[in-house]
Every structure is written in C-alpha cells, then in structure tokens.
Design a protein around this nucleic acid. Structure first.
Length: 277
DNA sequence: GCCCAGGGATGCG
DNA sequence: CGCATCCATGGG
C-alpha cells in the first residue's frame, strides 16, 4: 500500500488494507454517502471526496492532513491482521473485513452521535445526525457542518424529538446543557480510565457508548464495545446465552488487549453484514 | 401485530 | 452489587 500526499489529494496505490465501502459501512461513522465508486465523507466542518478503483484510492479535500489522520493512514493494518488471523474465531471475520480501518473522528461529534445510537439502528442514526447538522450546523457551501456545542445548546428537548431521538431527547438535552468545550479538551488529555468515568457520568452514556467514543473519538484501542451484535457473536462462539455485556466486554478486551478495538470491529462487521444469529 | 436496532436509566432486593 | 422493566421510533 503506497501512499502519496499532494496539496489537495491523497493517492493510495495497491490499497490492500483499505476498502472504502467497508470502512464507511462498518458502523463507526454516520455522515457519508456512497454512490458507485465514489463517496463523500464529513467530519466536523470538513469534507472529503473519495474515489476508488481496483488498485487505487484517491481522497480529495481542502484539509488533506485531517483526513490522513481520520482514515488512520499511518497505521500498518497488515501487521494487525497478521496477529488477529492467528485467532481461530477471528480469522473469517478478518478476511471478510480486511479493508476496514478504524476512524479517528472528533470526540465531541462521536459523543453526540453515539448517544443517538443507543438501542437504535444505523439508518435512523444517520437520519437524526443529518437533521441536527441541517438544523444547527453551519452552512459550508453545499453541505452542513456538524453543529458546534454552543450551537446545540440552542436545541430544545422538542427539537431533539423532531430529530427522531425519541426517549433519548431528554438525555441529549441534559448532556448538551451540562457539557463545556473545556470538558471535551480535558477529556483528550486524560488517562483512559478517567475518560471512561467521565463519559459514563453523562446522561445517555453507558459502558458501550463510552467505549465507542473512546475507540472512534479518542484513539483508545484496548476497549471492546459490546452491542447486540457482539453479544450474539459471543454466544455463538462460546455456545452460551448470556446477556451480561459487562462480562463479555471484560473477557474479550482481556483476550485481545491492545488490538481489542480492531478485533471488535472485524467481528461486528462480519456478523452483522451476514446477519449471523 | 410482533420483533429488532452499535443500550441506558431507574428502582428494587 | 445484580437483576427486571421501561423506554420512542421506523423498518422488516
């Protein structure tokens, strides 16, 4: 995988560790659209256009540096996959999602997005997030930015209901009202156990949502978010019927260590995409 | 009509 | 602590 960086474009030749649809469709990001062999991706107030063919990916953006980090292009995924395919359970999932990369997204954007994600499905999450951007985000010439915290503080409980948040509307309102920009900045500089404690103290944020924020928004890789799919994965692999997600997360993060976040994402994508029960 | 979706809050023992 | 129950909403 050879990466060349130009002023407004990143060119990746022979991208064996990067499949754009896989990376976008694996449930870590909600602001994108795919049309044939091209896609548009948004983060904060930024936008990138991706096009791809068999042996080349091009990423065009006004902020190439941001999206270089966003798509985790500095990391050697071949090395990670080489370790994880030794795990009998994981091999099929890694082979299936071999082009997945873990996004480095904005922590605050992930916080808001994953509060919406609770007991929800990806289609509805996307719609709600898009509504909030259109309603409270800055117009950026053809698209809307993710709303800033100060902008979202103007949203009422009813506004969040109109956005389709359902019973999460009150939780979102409370958390947005309470949160400050300083909280978010502090969060980025905390050790991960304190990040977790702070996050789960917020309304609408439990262990799973906190782990997703850490994984996709704070670069913490030794967490194992357990949603309904990972719960199914665990029961299928261990021939059990537990619903104790805390136990599952503890066990699997101990098993996969610093590669937990990657392993989790391969499992999630493979089982959900194939609707394995 | 029932079940499910990247679960969390609350109350009760 | 663990456990049960409730929670909006739309698609299958």
């Amino acid at each position: 995988m050879n990466i060349e960086i130009k002023e407004n474009k990143i060119i990746i030749d022979n991208p064996q560790d990067f499949d754009v649809p896989q990376t976008l469709n694996c449930g870590q990001i909600f602001r994108y659209s795919i049309d044939g062999n091209s896609a548009v991706v948004y983060s904060k107030n930024k936008m990138a256009i991706l096009t791809w063919s068999e042996n080349r990916i091009e990423i065009s953006s006004k902020d190439v540096g941001y999206f270089y980090n966003f798509f985790d292009l500095d990391r050697d995924y071949s090395a990670i996959k080489q370790v994880l395919t030794k795990d009998k359970f994981l091999k099929k999932a890694v082979d299936y999602g071999a082009g997945i990369r873990i996004i480095n997204n904005d922590a605050y954007e992930m916080l808001v997005s994953f509060i919406i994600s609770a007991n929800n499905n990806i289609g509805r999450i996307k719609k709600s997030v898009e509504y909030l951007c259109a309603r409270f985000g800055e117009e950026c010439g053809g698209y809307f930015a993710f709303p800033t915290l100060s902008a979202l503080k103007h949203a009422s409980v009813q506004d969040f209901r109109t956005a389709g948040l359902g019973y999460r509307a009150e939780q979102m309102f409370e958390t947005i009202q309470q949160l400050t920009d300083e909280d978010i900045e502090n969060l980025k500089n905390m050790p991960s156990d304190e990040q977790f404690k702070f996050l789960v103290s917020l309304k609408g944020v439990g262990e799973k949502v906190a782990n997703c924020i850490m994984l996709f928004g704070l670069g913490v890789k030794n967490v194992f978010p357990v949603d309904t799919w990972i719960n199914k994965v665990y029961n299928a692999l261990t021939n059990t019927t537990t619903t104790d997600r805390k136990k599952i997360s503890k066990e699997l993060s101990a098993r996969y260590g610093e590669l937990s976040g990657f392993a989790q994402q391969y499992y999630f994508y493979y089982f959900r995409d194939n609707k394995i029960k």
